[in-house]
C-alpha cells in the first residue's frame, strides 16, 4: 500500500496507434483524449533528457525511445508501470530523492589536481589523450534516467546500496586523469558501495544509452585494489580467488570462504558446512588438486603483473605478510 493509502492498480486504455508510434506518444494520446489526470514525466522526446523512464512489459525503458508495435508483437500486450525501487508519487511519476541523494553522496564534480605540469600545456590547459578520455567516455553518457536503478537486484534487497547510476558517476571522476586527491574511492568502498553489487548485469542490459554501469563498477573495484583500499570482505573475496587460481589453476571454495570471512566469522559457517558435508558437499581444499599446466598459468600471471607494477607491489607486500 502506498503512502496515499491506496493499493496500486492497473488501468486499461484502448489507443489507436500507427507504425512508429512510441510509448510516450501513446501516453500523450491517452492524456489528451481519454484521461487528463494521467501523470507521467517527459521532456525532450529524443532520449537525451532521461525524464520518461518507465517499466514497459516489466523492463525499464525510455518511453520516447520505445515503439508500441514491437512491444506488442513480443508480449501480446503493453503494460506500462512506474519504475521499481523508488516510491510512487502518482501514476507513473516516482520520487527521485533517494536516487539524487546517492548521486550527491559521491560528490559528482571534479576535484582536480593542484598543478600537474605533465598534464598541462604552457598556457595551463589540460591535455587529455584520446585513450584517457575514452576510459570514462561511456560513463559520461549517463542521462540519469533511473532505468539501471530500477532494475538493480542488490537495490531491490538493500535500499542503502549506492546503486549503478551513482557508482557510474563516481567512475566518471575517479577514472578521469585530472582527478586529484579525494576520499571518493574509499567512501564508495564502504558498506553499501562497490562490493555490494551482485553482478546481475541488469544495469548494463537495460541502459538506454549503452553506458554499461557494471563495467564502471568493475573499473572502480580494480582501482580500489590498485590503490590499496583493501580492508573489506569484497577485496578479500577477490584476492582469495586470484591466489587460488595462481596456486592451483582452480577456484577453491573452502579457501574463499575462510579468507573472505576471516577466522571468527568462518566459525559461524560451521553449521552450514556440516550440513553440506552430510550431503558430500563440503568443499575440502584437498579435493581440488592442481591442474597439470599450472606453470602456464603462473607465466600468464607473471607477464600481466610485470606490466602492472602496482599490482605486483601489492602482491609482494601481501606475500611478505
Amino acid at each position: 500500500m502506498g503512502s496515499s493509502g491506496y493499493e496500486p492498480f492497473l488501468q486499461a486504455y484502448d489507443v489507436n496507434i500507427s507504425a512508429g508510434t512510441t510509448v510516450l506518444d501513446a501516453l500523450h494520446k491517452i492524456k489528451d483524449e481519454q484521461d487528463g489526470t494521467l501523470s507521467f514525466r517527459r521532456s525532450c522526446r529524443s532520449a537525451i533528457c532521461g525524464s520518461c523512464a518507465v517499466k514497459i512489459n516489466g523492463t525499464p525503458k525510455l518511453a520516447c525511445k520505445t515503439q508500441v508495435i514491437p512491444e506488442f508483437e513480443k508480449h501480446s500486450t503493453v503494460i506500462i508501470e512506474s519504475l521499481s525501487s523508488l516510491p510512487v508519487i502518482k501514476d507513473l511519476v516516482v520520487d527521485f530523492d533517494a536516487f539524487w541523494h546517492k548521486i550527491h553522496k559521491i560528490e559528482p564534480y571534479l576535484n582536480p589536481k593542484e598543478d600537474d605540469k605533465d598534464l598541462k600545456d604552457k598556457d595551463g590547459w589540460w591535455i587529455i589523450k584520446k585513450e584517457d578520455a575514452l576510459k570514462t567516455d561511456d560513463a559520461s553518457n549517463c542521462i540519469a534516467c533511473g532505468c539501471c536503478y530500477s532494475s538493480c537486484n542488490t537495490m531491490d534487497a538493500d535500499r542503502e546500496f549506492l546503486g549503478p547510476a551513482a557508482l557510474t558517476k563516481a567512475w566518471r571522476f575517479i577514472g578521469d586523469i585530472r582527478e586529484g586527491k579525494t576520499r571518493r574511492l574509499s567512501k564508495i568502498s564502504d558498506e553499501h558501495g562497490i562490493w555490494s553489487c551482485s553482478r546481475c548485469i541488469e544495469c548494463t542490459e537495460v541502459c538506454p544509452k549503452d553506458v554499461r554501469p557494471l563495467t564502471a563498477i568493475e573499473n572502480l573495484r580494480s582501482e580500489a585494489i590498485k590503490k590499496g583500499i583493501t580492508d573489506n570482505a569484497g577485496v578479500r573475496h577477490v584476492e582469495a580467488m586470484v591466489d587460488s587460481v595462481r596456486k592451483t589453476g582452480k577456484l577453491d571454495e573452502a579457501a574463499m570462504t575462510f579468507r573472505t570471512l576471516g577466522f571468527m566469522r568462518s566459525i559461524g559457517m560451521i553449521p552450514l558446512g556440516l550440513k553440506m558435508e552430510l550431503h558430500g558437499k563440503m568443499p575440502l581444499p584437498s579435493l581440488f588438486g592442481t591442474i597439470e599446466g599450472i606453470d602456464e598459468v603462473k607465466k600468464i600471471y607473471d607477464e600481466i603483473e610485470k606490466e602492472n607494477l602496482s599490482l605486483h607491489a601489492i602482491n609482494r607486500e601481501r606475500e611478505e605478510k
Binding site: 585494489i225 577477490v238 580467488m241 587460481v245 589453476g249 591442474i291 600468464i300 600481466i304 602492472n308
Partner: peptide, 26 residues
Amino acid sequence: MKDANCCGAGLMTDYNYELSLALNAR
C-alpha cells in the same frame, strides 16, 4: 578439458581485466 583453468568467475575482472582475458584465452 581436464587441464583448463578457472574462468575467474567475474572476480578476476575486478582484479585485472587483462589477466582475466589472458586466462580465458588459455
